[in-house]
Simulated assay, not measured.
Amino acid sequence: MNTVGSIGTLLVSTLGTIYLMAILLRFLLQLSRADFYNPITQMIVRFTDPGVLLFRRFIPGIRGIDLSSLVYAILFQCAAMYALIFMSGYSFPNFGLILTWGLAGILNFILNIYFWGMLISIIASFIAPFSGHPALVLVRQLTEPVMAPFRRILPAMGGLDLSPIFVFLAIQIIRITLVLPVGANPAFVLGM
């Protein structure tokens, strides 16, 4: 790979990862019913509106789930993988393999968002438990629907919340069973 290809790969993977994260955050924040008027949510919506609104014309939402942003994220992942493969000088694999890698990459990216969101939420609960900072409020709103089922199952342990441990275990089990067997090439899949 030449210098131009290396710079192109760096730019596509970095900027593509940031944009894909914004698309997935939009999907997950809408799924978790986060505050739409949070300034960070507003920024994410404005940043991703052009592509999502284009897909929303053709793909309706189902029961409050914005399928247009999810389909947009999958297609963006596949397009970015094609661009990275092209810049690396490899021959293109068939679309089925690209789509499988893309779906595995999207699932892995969502798991990473929840992993880091949970970690931020845990640290913030020790450092600033009653903070009203928009970023921390958004992280809590994002992770609460994932932790709530585990909180219902586990009894209260004298002020200790053990549900994040089981969420981390669930994330790793999903990653081991659904993402790793696909064998996606991390050099081409965003978020891997």
Rank of each mutant, 00 (worst) to 15 (best):
T3Q: 15
V4E: 13
V4D: 13
V4L: 14
G5M: 02
I7H: 11
I7P: 06
G8W: 04
L11G: 06
L11Y: 08
V12C: 04
V12M: 02
S13A: 08
S13N: 08
L15Q: 09
G16C: 08
L20F: 08
M21I: 14
A22Q: 01
F27K: 02
L29P: 10
L31V: 06
F36Y: 15
F36E: 13
N38S: 04
Q42T: 07
Q42Y: 07
I44W: 00
I44P: 00
V45E: 07
R46M: 14
R46H: 15
G51Q: 01
G51I: 01
R57H: 03
F58E: 08
F58V: 12
R63I: 12
G64M: 04
L67I: 10
S68W: 06
S68L: 03
I74G: 11
F76Q: 06
C78M: 12
A79R: 05
Y82L: 13
Y82F: 14
A83G: 12
L84K: 03
G89R: 11
G89Q: 08
F92W: 11
P93C: 05
N94Q: 12
F95Q: 11
F95E: 14
G96W: 14
W101M: 02
G102L: 01
G105M: 09
N108I: 04
N108P: 11
I110M: 12
Y114D: 02
G117H: 08
M118H: 04
I122D: 00
I123Q: 01
I123A: 07
A124Y: 01
A124I: 02
S125R: 03
S125A: 11
S125T: 03
I127C: 12
P129G: 05
P129V: 02
R140L: 00
R140A: 00
R140M: 00
Q141P: 04
E144Q: 10
V146Q: 00
P149E: 10
F150L: 14
F150I: 08
A156K: 13
G159A: 09
L160T: 06
D161F: 01
D161N: 04
P164S: 10
V167P: 01
L169Q: 10
Q172K: 05
Q172D: 13
I173K: 10
I176Y: 14
I176L: 12
T177G: 14
L180F: 15
V182R: 02
A184P: 13
N185S: 12
P186G: 01
P186L: 02
P186H: 02
P186T: 02
G191E: 09
